[in-house]
């Protein structure tokens, strides 16, 4: 049945080359854990992506209940965690995933570093990777404020003060992040929410696309 549908579409649109281009590629022996178990370090990039997908999905579902408003943010998180079926699990996925994605990304970066994969011709992809790293940290920072509890509030205060300690432009950065020169409040929360769910994910998608296109172009780096 599925085969028939596929053939019907393929006959008209010739879709086979499209997915072959994406799915069919050489997996050299030195990156295949079935040959050398230590090659599992080459999985960290894929695992980072896997958790990113979980973050995006669980995040989309959380926004069905979450409100970025100082009166209601905490209450909506409390409600979605305790009153909605599987709320604890969906929030848990996003909560723990946020830390795990950074661990995975770090391990992936270490693998790239110690296999020397950043060297010519892959310098540009290292730079893109640094961009992804920064965006992930940004997602973690902006997401942390959203539950609007004491921990969130004071962590963000400290984070913003760190940014404010920058010479010359620190004050401006602080106001830009918090939405107000002195208050960390309503405007901070809406800003962080917008940055967390729209701006950074959009930038992340662009950089991930660049990352993956370059990998397909250049292939995986050779054995040590």
């Amino acid at each position: 049945m599925l085969n028939k549908i596929y053939d019907w579409v393929d006959e008209r649109l010739d879709i086979t080359p499209i997915w072959r281009d994406i799915a069919d590629h050489e997996v050299p022996e030195h990156v295949n854990p079935a040959h050398h178990f230590s090659a599992f370090v080459y999985c960290f990039g894929g695992l980072t992506f896997f958790i990113t997908v979980i973050q995006i999905l669980s995040g989309m579902f959380l926004t069905m209940y979450y409100v970025p408003d100082v009166e209601n943010a905490w209450k909506s998180v409390y409600y979605l965690q305790n009153e909605v079926a599987f709320g604890e699990i969906v929030r848990g996925m996003h909560h723990w995933g946020a830390s795990l994605v950074i661990v995975m990304m770090f391990l992936h970066t270490l693998r790239v570093f110690f296999t020397g994969s950043y060297k010519k011709p892959r310098e540009l992809n290292w730079l893109v990777g640094v961009g992804i790293f920064a965006i992930m940290l940004g997602l973690g920072f902006t997401g942390y404020l959203l539950p609007w509890d004491m921990k969130a509030l004071f962590a963000t205060k400290v984070g913003i003060e760190i940014a404010a300690s920058m010479p010359f432009i620190g004050g401006m950065i602080k106001t830009l992040l918090a939405g107000d020169a002195t208050i960390l409040g309503a405007q901070t929360l809406t800003r962080f929410f917008a940055i967390h769910v729209f701006f950074l994910p959009a930038a992340l998608f662009a950089l991930l696309a660049a990352h993956f296109i370059m990998i397909r172009r250049q292939g995986i780096s050779g054995p040590l």
Binding site: F61, L80, F86, V90, M93
Partner: peptide, 15 residues
């Protein structure tokens, strides 16, 4: 395993 909790979460108002 990933989608089941999220879908149940989303359709909760109906149930």
């Amino acid at each position: 395993g990933m989608l089941m909790p999220m879908v149940r979460f989303a359709i909760d108002p109906v149930l």
